[in-house]
Simulated assay, not measured.
Amino acid sequence: MTDNDSKNIKYSITKYLSMREHSCHELLKKLLAKGYERALCEHRISQFSQADIQSDLRYAEMIVRSRVSKGKGEQLIRNELSQHAIEPELIELAITEQNVDWDALALEVSQKKFGNKPAKDWHEQQKRNRFLLYRGFSHEQIRALKSVR
């Protein structure tokens, strides 16, 4: 561990965070890939977190906004945030702060992909259901669409 490594880590974290929000997990992964020592990286990241320069909550909020705008469902968003080691409480907070009507979003995504026409047969309905499941919508949200279509 050299003083130069510490400065390089600080520079790298600053550079990453100047481009967009990053989770602690993501920053650590990037720094370790550069060959820096884990303990030093964790220490530097915690300094940025304590100074509120890096925030897992802001990262989670950014991901939620981004994925909702792309028509992704709640389950997909939760899974993605979990993979970035975001705490469940922060995931819940980020999702509830956005006040997303998931049923309306599922309807919008379905209409954008398939139009307003009802499915012509069972196979077509299953294709639509699989598409919405793949996008991260729950079975309940998909069932709710059947009453609207």
Rank of each mutant, 00 (worst) to 15 (best):
L145I: 09
D121Y: 04
F137T: 02
S147W: 07
K113Q: 15
R128T: 03
H123M: 07
G115S: 05
G136F: 09
A119S: 15
F131Y: 15
K117M: 08
R130D: 09
P118L: 10
L145W: 00
L145C: 03
Q126K: 14
F137Y: 08
L132V: 03
A119P: 03
K113E: 15
R143G: 00
K117C: 04
Q126N: 15
K146E: 10
N129H: 08
G136C: 13
D121C: 05
R128F: 02
E124S: 11
K127I: 09
S147R: 12
R143S: 07
S138D: 09
R128W: 07
H123C: 04
L133Y: 08
H139R: 13
N129I: 06
H139E: 14
Q125M: 13
N116M: 10
L145A: 02
K117A: 13
A119Q: 09
K120Q: 09
E140F: 07
H123T: 08
A144N: 13
W122F: 14
A119F: 08
G115I: 10
K112Y: 11
K112N: 12
I142M: 02
L145M: 09
R130Q: 10
S147C: 03
E124L: 05
L145Q: 11
K112F: 14
Q126M: 15
K112S: 14
R135Y: 09
R128V: 05
R128N: 02
G136N: 07
A144F: 04
N116I: 08
P118F: 03
Q125V: 04
H123E: 12
H139L: 10
L145H: 01
G136W: 03
Q125W: 14
G136T: 11
R128H: 08
Q125L: 13
D121S: 04
Q141P: 01
F131K: 01
K127G: 05
Q141H: 01
I142Q: 02
D121T: 05
L133V: 02
Y134P: 00
R135I: 02
E124R: 07
Y134G: 04
S138T: 15
K113D: 05
R130G: 01
K127C: 05
R130P: 00
P118I: 11
K146Q: 13
F114N: 02
L145E: 04
D121Q: 06
K112A: 15
A144M: 05
R135T: 00
L132Q: 01
G136L: 03
H139F: 12
F137K: 01
Y134M: 10
R135C: 14
